Amino acid sequence: MIRIGIFGAAGIAPQALIRPVSRRTDMEVVAVAARSLESATSFAREHGIPRAYEGYAELLAADDIDLVYVALPPSEHVRWSVAALEAGKDVLCEKPISMDAAQARHAAAVAERTGRHLIEAFHDHYHPLTAAVRDFVNSGALGTVASIDASFTADNPYSPTSIRHVPALGGGALMDLGCYPVHWLRELAGAEPFITGARFVPNELGADIAIDAEMVFTSGPHAGARGTLHASMEPGVPFAAPVVVTGDRGTLRVDNLVLPHRGHSVTTVIDGVTRTWTVAGAETYDHELDAVVTSLRTGTAADTEGEDFVATMDVIDAIYAAAGVVRPDTAIGS
């Protein structure tokens, strides 16, 4: 039995962890920690969690917790992921793993030194749809791939107190939403992109409420292909997560790569013939927990560990630099 402690009485935890764990017999949530005991206790009572802690250090001192789920603002991800690793715990950390690539490299180094797993929670990656789309793109059915375009938009109007909009907490459209298209672009291209341009729309605090980027892939199976990324939290934008891959024989479009269990479609148009299909699977979070259990039991790295999350943060850094977004100062281990 893998015993889990949660950092943060966060809104994402029930759908991303608590409910999926309740469907399993090999994991259980045994504790939650928050900055205030009142918050932790209320959350524990609501979700049937046996223990509540005031402060994260107290939870780390418990010797009956195997895995820590970090559901804190991005500004706190590395600090508390590293603390959990040093305390001998494995970690599943919400995305993005860090504030920047330097922090990500530090966290990866600590995971390697301690011999523990630090897994970034890109749950969508573990759904069978992702592998099916990647394999189709690599099959040659589209011919020579010319472009990969990825987007994620969701209405999240500006609030000066929301972690999604405060730069110092890791807010911004690219950090909150765009990290998914970054991951999709890297995965489908099978290589890391070179960012050729980017622009953003700032909110009142200077964080990006919308951002666009252009890139080129100079290596990998689709070297020469170009890519675009769009992410937006602007008021009124639809919830949409499409990916379009264009080759010299046709196109592939995926609608809702981020939460395919809520409904998705894959449409290909090849040599003038249109086909629409779906890929069976459970909730993305269930597949993610399958991968976490396998990693912890076998000692093998999950797909979204180490080099993968460092590479994602490298791309995020490059997009922000190209767009001219002023980033908050971050200490490597904070």
Rank of each mutant, 00 (worst) to 15 (best):
H47Y: 11
H106M: 05
L118F: 12
L296W: 09
A318S: 11
A231E: 00
V245R: 00
T284S: 15
W184F: 06
G220R: 12
L118R: 07
E305P: 03
V273K: 03
G272N: 08
L85I: 13
V32S: 07
P128M: 11
L259T: 15
L60A: 13
E288C: 15
A31V: 02
R35Y: 01
L229H: 01
A198K: 05
L129A: 06
L296H: 01
S295C: 01
S219D: 12
I4P: 02
E283K: 15
H261C: 06
P328K: 04
G55E: 03
L37H: 14
P221Q: 00
T246Q: 14
L59N: 10
L60K: 09
F239R: 12
D26C: 14
T251Y: 05
D90P: 09
A223L: 04
A191S: 12
A223P: 06
G171D: 10
V325G: 06
G115N: 10
V216E: 15
H222K: 04
T228R: 15
R19V: 11
R226C: 00
Q15M: 08
P157S: 08
D329I: 10
L185K: 05
P328N: 00
R226V: 02
G11T: 09
S139N: 04
A301S: 09
S219P: 02
A302E: 07
D314H: 09
V292D: 07
L185D: 07
G11W: 07
P238E: 08
S98G: 13
V237Y: 03
V70I: 02
H264W: 03
L205R: 07
G5M: 05
P96A: 12
S334I: 00
L85S: 13
G143A: 04
G247W: 04
F136I: 01
T304A: 06
V30K: 13
R24Q: 02
A107I: 03
A10H: 08
G140L: 08
A44C: 11
V293E: 09
P235F: 10
D176R: 06
Y126H: 15
A83T: 06
H287I: 03
P235E: 14
V133W: 04
S219F: 00
V32F: 08
A9W: 11
D271V: 00
R35S: 06
D314M: 05
H165L: 04
P128N: 07
L67G: 07
E112W: 06
T41Y: 03
I270F: 01
G115P: 08
S334G: 09
A280T: 05
T268R: 05
E28R: 13
L252E: 02
P160E: 15
S36T: 14
S159Q: 01
G143R: 01
V254Y: 03
P96T: 15
I65S: 11
T196R: 07
Y320S: 13
N156E: 10
V182T: 00
L72Q: 10
V110M: 05
V258I: 14
T304N: 06
V279H: 03
G272V: 05
F152K: 04
V110I: 09
I2F: 06
M27H: 07
D248T: 01
G171K: 10
V216P: 12
D212H: 15
G281A: 02
T276C: 09
I97C: 05
A108H: 11
D90V: 09
V182S: 00
G236H: 07
E54L: 03
H287A: 00
Q15R: 14
